[in-house]
């Protein structure tokens, strides 16, 4: 018994140690960590990185870049205060906001075509899916999943109708699975995977994001944590400035842009050009379509509340269009 008590004491001491050790120190004022994902939708960030626009915007700022495989990982890293600014689609942002994460949108990044591609000739709308079909997409709660659910709500009156066909795959794996004609018969994705898949004759687009949303919407937004925004106001301002500069650089210096992107993504210049000219591809700091996502997600219990005001979900100066 004495030994047991001793052990409990040791555990308690350890625990107290952990508790005090865990308390978050104020973030180093001179650092910013930015997390992005893969794909051309993040192109302005490659420009920012390559031209060191953020470093130029604030010479005292130490800039760290992290590339992560999925939104959930970015969200978790931001929760753990390892990442200050993360780039993701609107639905995963809203899920985090709804669960009480202290973060807000700092600005839009890009709009992009997204679509559901099927390789089965019998499938021409989502109504044609059967129990044996499998739909690959990045993960439940991703913008692709929410768009699919929106289409299901319209078509079947039940947003969860196709949830039992889902399989989670990152875009490249999803594309491989679809092209290799495995049991994956449909893939909800974005360029360059979307355009790549549609080049093959067997594949066809059965649903597009714009069609579901009834208009354009922002695909990727930049999200900043409250602690970064409040405690490093200078750094935050510098980041917003660099983001705007990156986007306007892409508009004014097309040739250089194509060169930088071609190197950054290891694809040919022609492919980059083709992508930038794709209908629906746009880089802009304005945020579009947030209300539509929020209303749908609230209506179908993906989130418990909708933002009452713009200030609840956006830092100052975000240009927002309904």
């Amino acid at each position: 018994m004495k030994r047991t008590i001793k052990w409990i004491a040791v555990l308690l001491v350890l625990l107290l140690g952990i508790n005090t050790g865990c308390s978050k120190q104020a973030p180093d004022l001179k650092q910013i960590t930015i997390a992005e994902q893969y794909g051309l939708a993040y192109a302005p960030l490659q420009i920012m990185k390559e031209l060191r626009l953020l470093e130029k915007s604030d010479a005292n700022l130490l800039v760290n870049w992290r590339q992560m495989g999925n939104t959930a990982a970015i969200r978790e890293a931001m929760l753990a205060e390892e990442v200050d600014v993360g780039f993701m689609a609107i639905p995963p942002f809203l899920i985090g906001w709804d669960k009480g994460m202290e973060w807000k949108i700092a600005g839009g990044l890009s709009s992009s075509p997204v679509g559901l591609v099927s390789n089965r000739s019998e499938v021409s709308t989502i109504k044609d899916f059967t129990e044996s079909d499998r739909i690959a997409l990045p993960q439940p709660g991703s913008v692709q999943h929410i768009l699919l659910s929106m289409a299901c709500e319209k078509e079947f009156g039940d947003s969860h109708k196709l949830d039992n066909l889902l399989i989670t795959m990152a875009h490249p794996e999803g594309m491989n699975a679809l092209m290799a004609e495995t049991d994956v018969t449909a893939h909800f994705t974005a360029p360059p995977y979307l355009t790549g898949e549609l080049k093959s004759k067997e594949n066809r687009l059965i649903l597009s994001g714009e069609e579901v949303m009834g208009g354009e919407f922002t695909f990727i937004v930049g999200v900043a944590t409250k602690s970064f925004h409040d405690e490093n106001a200078e750094g935050y301002k510098a980041f917003i400035k660099a983001l705007e500069e990156s986007i306007s650089f892409m508009e004014t210096n097309k040739i250089e842009t194509v060169e930088i992107l071609s190197n950054a993504y290891a694809i040919s210049k022609e492919e980059v050009e083709e992508y930038l000219d794709t209908q629906g591809v746009e880089y802009a700091a304005k945020v579009q379509g947030l209300d539509k996502f929020a209303d749908f997600m609230k209506r179908n219990d993906y989130i418990s509340k909708t933002p009452a005001s713009k200030a609840e979900i956006m830092w100052d100066d975000v240009y927002y269009e309904d």
């Binding site: 899920i95 985090g96 994460m101 439940p140 709660g141 991703s142």
Partner: peptide, 9 residues
Amino acid sequence: IFKQRVFMD
């Protein structure tokens, strides 16, 4: 479990 993770529950 995976679904709870992506929906932050």
